[in-house]
Structure formats: C-alpha cells, structure tokens
Amino acid sequence: MSEASEPEEVTQETAEEATPDVAGLQARAAGLQQRVAELEDRWRRALADLDNLRKRVSRDADRVRVEERARAAVEWLPVLDNLERALEHAESDPASIVEGLRAIRDQALDVLARLGFPRRDDAGTEFDPARHEAVATLAQEGVPDGTILHVVRPAYGDGEQQLRPALVVVAKGE
C-alpha cells in the first residue's frame, strides 16, 4: 500500500494542536451564548417598557378626556344658572321670559363658539352636500338653482370640526 492510503497515526503533537482549537471554539460559543442572553434580556426589557408606555398613554388619554369634558361642562354652567333664574321669574312677569330666553340662547351660542363650534348662517348661500342636508326643494323665481332658501335646523362648526350639517330648503329651477 502507498503512504497516502495509510491511516495517520495520532500522536501527542496532533492532539495538542487540536486541543487549543476546540478550547477556542468552546470559549467563543460560551461568549456567543452570553451575548444571546444579554440580547434576550434587553428585548424583554424593551417589551416591558413598551407595555408600560402603552398603559401610561392610555391613562393620560383618559385623564385628558375627563378634563375636557369637565371644561365643557363648566362652560355650560352659567347657561343652566340663567335658565333656572328665568324660570323663577317667569311667574311674576311672563312677558320677560321671552327676553330672558333670547339672552340665554345667545349665551349658549357663545359657549358653542368658544368651544370651536360656531353657528353657521347658511341662508342665501349655495347648497354644498358636505355641509348641508336638503329636506325640501322649492321653485323660486329670481333665485339661482341650488341656493339655500331657508334653514330648518342650523349647522354648528365648520369643515372637520362640524358637529352636524344644516337641514335646508333649496331652490330648484322651474
């Protein structure tokens, strides 16, 4: 047989050469396992931080919602006080109740405007389906087609801040 086909004899030298290589690989594997453990720990902490952030944002949003509702309610308290005063005086002078109710209505309109929802006066403007809801049409001479003739129920707010559309009667061509 030739030399190439003979099995190599394991000597002390070849065993010593292989040992540092195995030891190095084991050390590297141990280092990688430690790095994986560190990364898993950081990942778990990040998940916990995210969960805590979600809970905090939810609590803050709830708190802001409650504060805004309270702020809106405070705006309406003077209107309610004036309604009660008007009802107290209604028996003594029934005619004054109309004047008092007009003043209270004006005060309520002012509250809505301060909250960002002013009343719109749409009579005489052109019908816009995004801002108006037609409840009837009327033939009217001398008025352009699509003009709002009468507001049945006014709108409050504008654009994306619209609380409700106006209910209107619209002119139509003959």
Rank of each mutant, 00 (worst) to 15 (best):
A37L: 10
R119G: 01
K55T: 14
E6M: 15
R59L: 14
I97G: 01
E91H: 04
P144G: 09
A113R: 08
Q107A: 13
D106F: 05
H132K: 07
A72L: 05
I104E: 07
H150D: 08
N82D: 13
L32I: 06
D21E: 13
L80K: 03
E84N: 10
L53S: 12
D60I: 11
R42P: 00
R120D: 09
V98C: 00
L77S: 04
E38Q: 15
R54Q: 14
R54C: 09
E75H: 03
R56S: 15
A123F: 01
Q162N: 02
D62G: 14
S58G: 06
D49F: 07
A15V: 14
V143D: 09
G24D: 14
L138P: 00
N82F: 01
V152Y: 02
A18L: 14
A30V: 06
L101S: 07
R59W: 02
V169E: 11
A61T: 14
T11E: 03
R69F: 10
T147F: 08
E99S: 06
L80G: 04
Q107C: 00
E16F: 08
E13W: 03
D158G: 05
T14D: 11
A48E: 15
Q162D: 03
R114D: 13
D122C: 10
L53W: 06
P118Q: 04
L163C: 05
A166M: 08
A103E: 13
A70G: 05
A90Q: 05
V143M: 04
R44Q: 12
V135D: 00
P144Q: 13
L167S: 13
P7D: 09
T19E: 14
R65T: 12
I97V: 12
G116I: 06
P94E: 02
A134P: 11
R56N: 12
E13H: 10
K55P: 00
R63P: 02
E141W: 07
P7A: 14
D158T: 11
V151H: 00
R42I: 03
P144C: 10
H150L: 12
V152Q: 07
L167P: 03
R71G: 09
L32M: 15
P154C: 07
E99H: 07
S96T: 05
E84F: 00
G173W: 09
L25G: 10
P154T: 07
A103C: 01
V135H: 03
T147G: 08
V57F: 13
W43Y: 10
A108K: 00
V66M: 03
R120G: 11
R28G: 08
A136R: 03
H89N: 10
E174C: 02
Q12H: 14
P129Q: 01
T125E: 12
A15Q: 09
G116N: 02
A72H: 05
Q162G: 06
E8K: 13
T147K: 07
G24A: 15
G116E: 07
Q26E: 15
D41W: 01
D81T: 03
T125H: 01
E99D: 06
A155H: 01
S2L: 11
V36E: 11
E174Q: 15
A15E: 10
V74Q: 10
L101R: 00
P20R: 12
A48I: 04
D60F: 05
A130F: 04
T14L: 13
A113L: 04
A95G: 03
D110M: 04
A155K: 01
